[in-house]
Amino acid sequence: MTRSIPNRTPRARIVVAGSVALALVACGGGGSSTTAPPPPNTCTATPPAAQISYYTPAQGRCGTALLTALQQLVRGQRVLGYTSARDSLYAFVDRGSRTWIVDLYTGRQAAGVTTRATAAQNSINTEHTWPRSRGAEVDPALSDLHHLFSSDSAANERRQNYPYGLVRGTVIWTGPAAAGGTETSRLGYANGSGGPIVFEPRASVRGDIARGLLYFYLRYNTDRPSGYSLLNFAQERDLLIAWAREDPVDAWERSRNDAVFRAQGNRNPFIDWPELLDLLPTLPLS
């Protein structure tokens, strides 16, 4: 006589990347061949209510299946081209309803910036947080607003294509603090004076930068543009996840995400759904 064996459901497991733990909740079958019923499905990934329709394909997925669903979701953006992307950046994405924009690295307020011309007059240009030389040199990555930010041109020049990190050794450059503020960005050595050179952004924008880079990885790691490289991201990954936790999403960042969605038609899941940091597997570096 043959007897049927219930489906097996594996237990949830935890994946740890460096000092940062990312919970990987496994979906699927497993259990015992005894008469006890199989345990219930433990995958409870629920998209944010405000954008439930956008994230429906990711509903109830977890682990690698969730990562894949999100990668497919964010691929469908409109390609603006670099000129139009910068026009949008200065006109409404980084401006919102204000009469000024705030530069990423110094916190300087630049009033009256609405176009590329007025940005140049105020020594503001566009920062690619994922450097152009690491895979953001051609569209759609070149003009993807989720990782582009208005930047003080002198600070942008100092950053070059160095990875983000914490300066714990010799300081090469310290940026100015905004009027009335104390935060600064720095360029220097991660360790002593012989370690790698890193760029340390001011504390209040580290989460914004981290979520922009995590988005870029999600969007392009399986659909790689010419020149794509994980050279920076391999050094940054665990720190970016820590920054995303330490500097949580605020109302301005959510509003900016909505503005980018209006411009290019896709969203940054790490802004809409911060819990993804606990739901996704360790992001592979290959």
Results as ranks from 00 to 15, higher is better:
R168E: 08
I271V: 14
N266M: 10
N232L: 15
L70F: 00
A141G: 00
I241V: 06
G192A: 02
L187S: 08
W273M: 09
D94R: 04
R219M: 11
A50C: 03
A178N: 11
T83N: 11
E137L: 06
I209W: 03
V167Q: 01
W252P: 00
A203E: 09
T126Y: 03
Q109T: 09
D144Q: 02
T282I: 07
D152F: 15
L145Q: 01
G76L: 05
T9F: 13
L231Y: 10
S226F: 04
C27F: 02
Y217E: 10
F261M: 10
L277V: 06
A203Q: 10
C43H: 10
A178R: 13
S4F: 05
E127T: 12
V260T: 08
E236C: 06
T2L: 15
D94N: 12
R237A: 06
G76Y: 04
L70T: 00
Q160K: 07
V15K: 07
R206D: 04
T184C: 14
A12K: 15
I241N: 02
I172M: 13
A136P: 00
E246A: 15
L239P: 02
L285W: 08
R8P: 01
I124W: 08
G175F: 10
Y162E: 09
R237T: 07
E236Q: 08
N191E: 10
D223K: 11
G31D: 05
S193I: 04
P196D: 12
R224C: 12
A110R: 13
A85C: 10
T44M: 06
L104C: 02
V15D: 10
D208S: 09
G212D: 04
P196Y: 01
I172S: 12
